[in-house]
């Protein structure tokens, strides 16, 4: 087991290193001079040079890479070119929107998917099953930004139940803040809920077909009793994996939704930073997201290995 964990740790470190190099090189070749962007049309060459010097854009590629990585290891993500504030602070600020949004969406998705999946599985083949599966097909196929537009049209512009976007701020209180995250969270959650409900259903049906369930039923349990007492727990493993993977997706997947609802979260920050050529912000945020995903994958691998020793020898 220890060998397995160590092995995975080595490849985790390697992945992170490769990712950092890829991201750095990628961001470095992005055309556009941040200094030119900041100074605009009438800037003179000597002014531009002075600003580039101030921004620390003039070292060699290797110098810049190593100072970026070493800084990151110490929790120093550098200073934003445009805002002139520490990137770590900006990320922490934006995190307070993106993270709750992702959690909210995840909660919604789970709350919708679990009952829907269980219900469909327990009434397999019935009208309910067909209806739920049909709805999940729609949920997977609908472009979430289009769905967001339709919700804005109905709930914000016509009914005025929600504001069409923006973030009330946590200082305005928990409920107003949650209210401004509600439409975005629904838009984000819908496709995820559909996927999750489908996984839940098929995973349940799988376990219901296993021998021990048949035995349980032979002992006189009804189908529903067998489902609740035995199948559900075992069916949860693949479902939890999907939830784990969806979480990192939701953090990053908010880019478009945050833009539709103009929420000042991480996704919007990335978009704005790319447009403003604020390379250091782009590098650091992407690196952080990749780190999060790799870490989640690592945790899932380890968890699997703990549950199922056969997996320790990588199949």
């Amino acid at each position: 087991m220890l060998r397995f964990v160590l092995g995975r740790l080595v490849s985790l470190t390697l992945s992170l290193f490769v990712a950092s190099v890829v991201i750095f090189l990628f961001v470095e070749v992005v055309p556009g001079d941040p200094a030119a962007y900041m100074l605009g049309l009438n800037a003179q060459e000597d002014t531009l040079e002075a600003l580039r010097e101030q921004l620390g854009l003039s070292g060699t590629l290797w110098e810049r890479y190593s100072s970026w990585i070493l800084g990151m290891l110490q929790g120093d993500f550098g200073t934003s070119y445009t805002y002139r504030t520490p990137v770590a602070e900006m990320i922490a600020d934006r995190m307070w929107i993106s993270l709750p949004l992702a959690l909210y969406a995840l909660a919604l998705s789970t709350l919708i998917a679990f009952p829907a999946g269980i219900w469909a599985a327990s009434k397999r083949g019935s009208l309910v099953d067909t209806g739920i599966m049909g709805l999940t097909q729609l949920g997977v196929a609908i472009p979430n930004f289009w769905f967001a537009m339709l919700m804005v049209l109905i709930f914000a512009i016509n009914l005025r139940w929600f504001s069409a976007g923006g973030f009330a701020g946590w200082e305005a209180g928990f409920w107003p803040a949650m209210k401004s995250l509600t439409l975005p969270a629904i838009a984000l959650a819908l496709p995820q809920a559909s996927i999750l409900a489908r996984v839940m259903r098929s995973s349940l049906l799988d376990t219901l077909g296993e021998d021990y369930i048949r035995t349980a039923r032979a002992k006189g349990l009804t189908r529903a009793q067998a489902l609740w007492r035995h199948a559900l727990r075992n069916a949860l493993i693949p479902v939890l994996t999907i939830i784990g993977l969806q979480f990192s997706f939701l953090i990053a997947g908010g880019i478009i939704i945050e833009n539709v609802f103009y929420l000042p979260g991480l996704g919007r920050m990335i978009f704005q930073s790319i447009a403003a050529r604020d390379l250091i912000v782009v590098e650091s945020v992407v690196m952080l997201l990749v780190f999060a995903v790799i870490l989640v994958n690592f945790a899932v691998d380890i968890a699997y290995a703990v549950v199922d020793p056969r997996l320790r020898v990588r199949a």
């Binding site: 504001s163 976007g165 539709v260 609802f261 103009y262």
Partner: peptide, 18 residues
């Protein structure tokens, strides 16, 4: 001063009197 880059969001914010 509130910054709303997206025109749609701007329209909605105005209509909602935000």
């Amino acid at each position: 001063f509130k910054f709303i880059s997206d025109p749609t969001a701007g329209f909605a914010a105005m209509m909602a009197e935000d």
